[in-house]
């Protein structure tokens, strides 16, 4: 393949977009639960892993079609999310943010252990959704899977906007996040809204895992780094701000890819964390967050 300045640049951008979309999805998952409860769910990375591994089993193991396996894997992880909320978050007598965060760490360790027992320690391969022959654009290559990732992020963002702005349940969730007392007074069951936030968040995490697995090969221990990057992106975009998460995700992904290409690939992961630190120093509420939103929430 010929290599020129612009071609290289475009190649890095493509790679950055692909990573960025995944970060954005993970960050959106963090945001949903954060908005509803004020809690950072440290098991978010595990949702991603479970989605990916389940997809591998259903497609490679059981030979299901991609579409069918996609739906079942997402549903499976959504149920895990609901179970997590009902079994570990809901029963807590005096929920404080710190207690709940520690619980999510425990759940993440548990899920990781279970995933290791079921799927083993090896990496799992899965075929790409629609072939792995790359398209060539101005000398740079882009995988069909990358287009799938970008497209699915787009669909989810649109669904998100519609759900939270145009449906009663979405409005109720927003109301509950803004003012829990007033929402209860309007007859909204706040605990159900928390459960729904875990369900949505797990579902989005699963989708991220499913679409990224053909590219990165999933294994049980991937969750920690994916979760960390997603968390960083959520903070950079402004915690609770999902549109901010999408922009920040793509920004971080592209900067990572560019620095990997032009500086050294060894420092790629460090770059994301460096951006996180810089944002925390300069704008603690995130690039798109309002200072009001960054105030500590009560559960």
């Amino acid at each position: 393949m010929e290599s020129g300045g612009f071609t290289d640049f475009l190649q890095f951008i493509f790679m950055g977009l692909q990573r960025g979309c995944i970060y954005a999805l993970v960050a959106m998952g963090f945001n949903i639960i954060y908005s509803a409860t004020g809690v950072i769910n440290f098991a978010q990375g595990e949702f991603v892993v479970l989605g990916g591994l389940m997809m591998v089993t259903l497609t490679t193991g059981f030979g299901l079609s991609i579409v069918f396996a996609f739906l079942i894997s997402t549903l499976f992880v959504t149920i895990i999310g609901i179970l997590m909320e009902r079994c570990t978050i809901n029963p807590v007598k005096k929920p404080t943010v710190l207690r709940l965060i520690i619980i999510t760490i425990a759940v993440s360790i548990l899920l990781k252990g279970v995933a290791m027992i079921i799927w083993g320690k090896g990496s799992h391969y899965m075929r790409h959704f629609s072939g792995s022959d790359p398209f060539v654009i101005a000398g740079a290559t882009i995988l069909p899977q990358t287009l799938w990732i970008i497209g699915i992020l787009g669909v989810i963002v649109v669904a998100f906007v519609v759900f939270f702005n145009l449906t009663m349940t979405g409005k109720s969730m927003r109301a509950c996040a803004i003012n829990r007392d007033a929402a209860c007074l309007a007859g909204i069951n706040d605990r159900n809204m928390v459960m729904l936030s875990f369900a949505l968040s797990a579902g989005i995490g699963a989708v991220a895992g499913i679409i990224v697995t053909p590219i990165i090969q999933m294994d049980y221990a991937r969750g920690a780094l994916l979760g960390l990057k997603g968390f960083g992106v959520a903070v950079v975009g402004g915690l609770g701000n999902s549109l901010g998460a999408v922009i920040a995700g793509i920004l971080v992904g592209v900067l990572e890819a560019l620095s990997g290409g032009y500086i050294s690939s060894h420092y790629m992961d460090a770059i994301a964390l460096l951006i996180l630190l810089l944002v925390l120093f300069v704008r603690p509420s995130g690039l798109f967050g309002s200072s009001e939103a960054s105030r500590l929430k009560e559960f």
Partner: peptide, 18 residues
């Protein structure tokens, strides 16, 4: 206790929840 970030109309719609 209103929902300050939501529109006036949305605030009332939340009351329609039940």
């Amino acid at each position: 206790q209103v929902f300050p970030q939501m529109t006036v109309l949305e605030n009332v719609m939340v009351g329609r929840h039940i």
